[in-house]
């Protein structure tokens, strides 16, 4: 996983590699929450372009981070998900609360427009 801050957009970009299951969820969650506190960002953008597998544990991670971003007045963006990961995202209904997009740039634009 890689984390980097886009200061201009007050956004933490979370780039996840490989499989996002219950086993991986804990460390992802902890790292993100630590970084949010440390950097004072309010938005979270998940780069899923290198996620090869995700199950409902990944949905739990996204929902939990959405709640944090929302409490800070920010929003959550997901981009780059492959077809099978996108299917889980669609099934969960989180598309109603997070912005799903094809790229970071478009996702941030769309999220800003929705506020």
């Amino acid at each position: 996983m890689e984390l980097f801050v886009l200061g201009k957009y007050r956004t933490l970009v979370v780039k996840i590699y490989g499989e996002l299951d219950h086993h991986k969820a804990d460390s992802v969650r902890k790292a993100i929450d630590r970084e949010i506190k440390r950097c004072g960002v309010i938005n979270i953008a998940f780069d899923f372009s290198n996620v090869t597998f995700m199950d409902s544990s990944g949905i739990g991670v996204i929902m939990g981070r959405y709640k944090i971003a929302k409490s800070l007045g920010g929003s959550t963006v997901i981009y780059g998900a492959n077809e099978s990961v996108q299917r889980i995202i669609d099934m969960s209904g989180i598309t109603n609360i997070v912005t799903v997009s094809d790229s970071l740039e478009n996702g941030l634009k769309e999220a800003a427009a929705n506020v």
């Binding site: 739990g60 929902m63 889980i88």
Partner: peptide, 14 residues
């Protein structure tokens, strides 16, 4: 409290 989504059985069924 463990940030479960409650979707496991739904996914298995689908």
């Amino acid at each position: 409290e463990l940030e479960r989504s409650g979707m496991g059985f739904t996914i298995m069924e689908t």
